[in-house]
């Protein structure tokens, strides 16, 4: 599985090139058609032998990050956030800027130089800057352009017992799973869609779904796991190691009940652990896909990840394995369900 390479690649919303290249290479041998659209979505098509059902299996390629917003005379770089980031995690992290991956550090006034009342406050983006070691604006501009995307500089590593740490597990884990799913053969037409710009408003998914006109959609995601100390179990959202998480509802979508029921049945039959996402907030590509044209029955399957949208995330590789099993079971089952079960009206 390509999780390490995908996690370490840079792909802030709107600047997904490196991730797209990796995925293109990985899936090319397994698909009938591979193309990109105006926004940069990568659409892989496996035609299958039958005409229906048309399944859109999608995962977003982009990650949250930063964008270069300006230069100080001193050569320090001002930035804005791309996607939802907690300002407080940014200070004292290392980053990579642009396609050339220029290294930099996020600096702030040293604690010694801060007044006592300043020390109590959290640091806002406006008080931070990226330092690439340039001595002047001109020097900085030689290496870095306005609008360059900036990603966290985090190494992937397996830690503990079957855990992994890295950046952008939301949603490179989904991309890695989708790549695996595309390696097998199916009878129905399968669109594997690696979307762009999910983190800034599910923009890629909107246009991809419009183009594809799927009968149903399955979105693979990395979702919040908050199973850590100081939180009660009801607030965990999801728990690491307890298997893929199914969503009933989030801010953007109410998932199709019948498909969820099918997934639950399959998991029970094959003894795959699953859990339900105990939180109804946040958006996913399923929101846009489900409202495309006349409407599309959609569900979300997620791998629980701790500390998402932060520079370092942790996930359970056991969950990743189980998620893939569940997805593959569903894909194998889909033709049987046919038009009647999986996406027909009652």
């Amino acid at each position: 599985m390509l999780l390490k390479e995908l996690s370490e690649a840079s792909g802030v919303s709107g600047g997904e090139s490196e991730v797209r290249r990796l995925i293109k290479e990985a899936v090319e041998p397994y698909v009938d058609e591979l193309k990109t659209d105006m926004l940069g979505n990568l659409i892989a098509f496996k035609s299958g032998s039958k005409k229906a059902p048309r399944l859109m299996l999608s995962a977003h390629m982009d990650e949250v990050g930063l964008i270069v917003a300006g230069f100080e005379e001193s050569g320090l770089i001002r930035f804005s956030k791309v996607g939802g980031i907690d300002d407080r995690v940014l200070v004292s992290k290392t980053v990579l800027i642009g396609e050339k991956k220029i290294p930099g550090v996020i600096g702030a006034k040293a604690i010694h130089l801060q007044k006592p009342e300043e020390r109590k406050k959290s640091l806002k983006v406006e008080e931070l800057y990226i330092d690439i070691g340039a001595k002047s604006k001109e020097e900085a501009k030689k290496e870095v352009k306005l609008g360059d995307y900036v990603s966290y500089n985090t190494r992937y590593q397996e830690i503990g017992v079957n855990y992994a740490k890295g950046k952008a597990f939301d949603n490179r884990v989904g991309c890695a799973l989708l790549i695996e799913a595309l390696k097998k053969e199916y009878t129905f037409p399968l669109y594997g869609v690696f979307t762009v710009q999910e983190e800034v408003g599910m923009r890629g998914a909107a246009v991809a779904a419009y183009r594809i006109r799927p009968d149903l959609a399955l979105v693979i995601e990395g979702t919040t796991a908050a199973d850590v100390i100081e939180l009660k179990e009801e607030s965990y959202v999801t728990t690491l190691g307890k298997g893929p998480a199914l969503t009933f509802m989030d801010t953007s979508v109410i998932c199709d009940k019948k498909i969820i029921e099918t997934l639950v049945e399959l998991a029970e039959k094959e003894n795959i652990p699953i859990q339900f996402r105990r939180f109804t907030g946040a958006n996913t590509d399923a929101g846009k896909i489900s409202l495309s044209r006349e409407g599309v029955r959609s569900v979300v399957i997620s791998v629980p990840c701790r500390y998402i949208h932060n520079p370092v995330n942790i996930l359970s590789l056991e969950d990743v394995k189980n998620t893939l099993k569940l997805i593959e079971l569903f894909l194998d089952k889909l033709p049987e369900g046919g038009k009647k079960q999986a996406y027909a009206n009652d």
């Binding site: 179990e233 009801e234 009933f248 509802m249 339900f276 105990r278 939180f279 109804t280």
Partner: peptide, 12 residues
């Protein structure tokens, strides 16, 4: 919408 059931049967 029910998101959690605790050991004493209370629902969140």
């Amino acid at each position: 919408i029910v998101t959690f059931i605790d050991e004493n049967g209370f629902l969140r």
